[in-house]
Write a protein that binds this DNA or RNA. Structure first.
Lengths: 209, 209
DNA sequence: GTCTATAGAGGGATAGAC
DNA sequence: GTCTATCCCTCTATAGAC
């Protein structure tokens, strides 16, 4: 106990390995889903034995829960914060698409897990059930303002469509990244609904042709 | 060989079990994905041993291929037939959504498998890669005519969006069937694009209130 | 055509040493 | 906090009897 005067800032070694295991698990779950990845896979990629992993988490399922809530810590504030204006929310949603386009890992995690979790017996079923409910309601109330005057998609339908569009785009994009422009598809969807987007252009391929 | 004078009409017993195994496999893959379902599961639900299953198919992967192509035999003509008019194609797409709403099994099969197959090492990766390419191109050429005059979604983007919408809706619907009206979302999307739908109403909940 | 038996790999989880 | 060793289960696939 000589070296122990470090509060939250400097995590203990245990805490560091623990987080490293979560990150590794996230990456592997991303590639192949939850069920197809073994504790031994995760352990090997984390640099310890599978018993070592089970020292930090009581079982594989608990590890999954930590992986999911870690993603939520990162993404939820961008979308679910109640203080966001509608403008900011839309901007954040588009920004999220751009960020996703840059990193297939988390995208693959959610594509794989949300499909698996469709099974009511899956450990993440309740998580995704609740997640989509909250997301739909939150987006619906934003669309209620943004679609003011339009008869056709009700705010609830628009929210469902928007989420579905994103999820579906991710599958196509993961299968064939060169053939699918997720950002263009999302932005064009918003425009079709009469919702302007402010973000300028994908800064990537600006070349003086 | 006493009882063998029956051509294609009356399938042999072997052929019948074989088909039964494919159907059973389809149902189980639907619920839990390909990797999570074992040959023993399939065998048990088919009423034979796992060795019995392997008599009909060289391995699990071959069985998957048969499951997939069986679905295609059923659904492809409705969508990919080159002789369809644009009107008929749209009607068929909406009809397919209605049919899906009535049967979660095949929906779950494709949701689970397309997510898994995102991994390039998955046995069905090439199948889905090609399937989405063909589907996008086919729908894009239909949208090219249907969207005549509209600037915003290009036919390619519209095709990508339409397919994504359907796939994404299926995930939400499987998780929470009561909260998602797939047909309404698809029809409203088409209307937003200025494409009318002719199918009248979901005949289900017609009750004299 | 279907079975039992078995091989051989790999899974999750626990016990106990260090 | 991490390891090795082990338990017991399930997997795919094969061999050979019936």
């Amino acid at each position: 106990m000589t070296d122990t005067e470090h509060p939250p800032q400097r995590p203990t070694k245990g805490e560091r390995t623990r987080r490293h295991v979560i990150d590794t698990a996230a990456e592997l779950f991303s590639r192949s889903g939850y069920r197809a990845v073994s504790l031994r896979d995760i352990a090997a990629h984390s640099g310890l034995s599978h018993a070592g992993v089970l020292h930090h988490f009581p079982n594989k399922e608990a590890l999954l829960v930590h992986v999911l809530s870690r993603r939520d810590e990162i993404d939820a504030p961008l979308v679910l914060d109640a203080d966001l204006s509608h403008r900011e929310l839309i901007d954040n949603l588009v920004e999220l698409v751009e960020r996703n386009t840059a990193s297939p890992g988390p995208v693959s995690l959610f594509v794989n897990l949300s499909a698996e979790a469709t099974d009511p017996a899956h450990p993440a079923h309740d998580y995704f059930f609740g997640r989509y409910r909250v997301l739909r309601e939150h987006l619906a109330s934003a669309f209620a303002a943004l679609l003011d005057g339009r008869p056709e998609p009700t705010p609830e339908v628009a929210a469902t469509q928007f989420i579905a569009l994103q999820d579906g785009l991710q599958v196509q994009w993961l299968l064939d990244p060169g053939a699918v422009d997720m950002r263009a598809a999302v932005v064009s969807f918003l425009h079709t609904l009469g919702i302007p987007t402010s973000a300028p252009a994908p800064t990537t391929d600006e070349r003086p042709s």
